Simulated scan of single mutants.
Amino acid sequence: MEKISKTILNQVITPRNPESYKGNYGKALIIAGSTQFGGAAILASSAAVNSGAGLVTIATTPEKFSAINSTIPEAMTLDYHNKKELLKAILNNKVIAIGPGLGTSSVAIGLVKAVLNNTKTDQTVILDASALTIIAEEKIPLQTTAHIIMTPHQGEWRRLSQLGIPEQTEAKNFEALHALNPDAVLILKKHGSEIYYQDMSFQITAGNAGMATGGMGDTLTGILTGFVSQFGYSLATIQAALLIHSVIGDKLYKKNYVVLPSKIIEKLPKYMNEFSQQTTNKN
Rank of each mutant, 00 (worst) to 15 (best):
V107H: 14
K64P: 01
N281T: 09
A131Y: 06
L55T: 12
Q278S: 08
G54A: 07
G232W: 12
L55N: 13
I42T: 14
S70L: 14
V112H: 11
S276C: 05
I8T: 12
E266P: 05
D183C: 03
A32N: 12
A40D: 05
G214L: 08
I98G: 04
Q277K: 14
V112F: 06
A179W: 00
L260H: 12
G155K: 15
I265C: 03
I90Y: 01
I165T: 08
A59F: 01
I30Q: 06
L268F: 07
M272Q: 11
G214Q: 11
T133D: 04
I134Q: 02
Y253C: 09
G38K: 10
F227E: 05
E138A: 15
W157M: 05
S106I: 02
K84H: 04
K190N: 07
N17P: 04
I204A: 01
V185H: 13
W157N: 02
E2N: 15
K189M: 10
A129W: 10
N117L: 12
K254I: 12
S193A: 14
S20W: 07
I248A: 03
L180W: 05
I4V: 08
G99I: 10
D250I: 09
E170A: 02
I244M: 13
A241H: 11
S20F: 13
E175R: 10
T14W: 02
I126K: 06
K120P: 00
